[in-house]
């Protein structure tokens, strides 16, 4: 069986409604991006899983409804904040951040009325 990464994923700010109304999930993510997802780059080395891949994986495996409220243009919809181990993902390379086992990723929507 292919290697996986154990991650904790949390949704907040209303985003949990798209994920069966469950805030906290423990998932086993493939450690490498399946070759079907990588456009032919000429290289055969498998690409390590990053947050961009996680977003796609969540959309395909965990999301229950209205994908357009979560994903837009291969990334999260503008207005969704992402934290990697309690740090703004903008400081961690955003979608390019390479995940490791034990990482905690939090997605918070800011799009709900205040």
């Amino acid at each position: 069986m292919a290697a996986t990464l154990n991650l904790k994923v949390e949704f907040g700010g209303g985003l949990e409604l798209l994920f069966d109304n469950v805030r906290s999930h423990r998932i086993a993510l493939p450690a490498h991006v399946p070759s079907s997802r990588v456009p032919d780059s000429g290289s055969r080395t498998p690409r390590p899983a990053n947050i961009t891949f996680l977003i796609h994986w969540l959309k395909d495996n965990l999301l229950k409804e209205r994908a357009e409220l979560f994903v837009e243009n291969e990334t999260v919809r503008p207005g969704i904040l992402v934290l990697v181990n309690d740090t703004d993902w903008e400081l961690e390379g955003e979608g390019d951040y390479e995940l490791k086992s034990g990482d905690e990723i939090v997605f918070i929507s800011t799009l709900h009325g205040g």
């Binding site: 207005g79 904040l81 934290l83 918070i108 205040g114």
Partner: peptide, 9 residues
């Protein structure tokens, strides 16, 4: 808004 949400978090 980003900072308000981060502050609350």
């Amino acid at each position: 808004e980003k900072e308000i949400v981060m502050y609350a978090y």
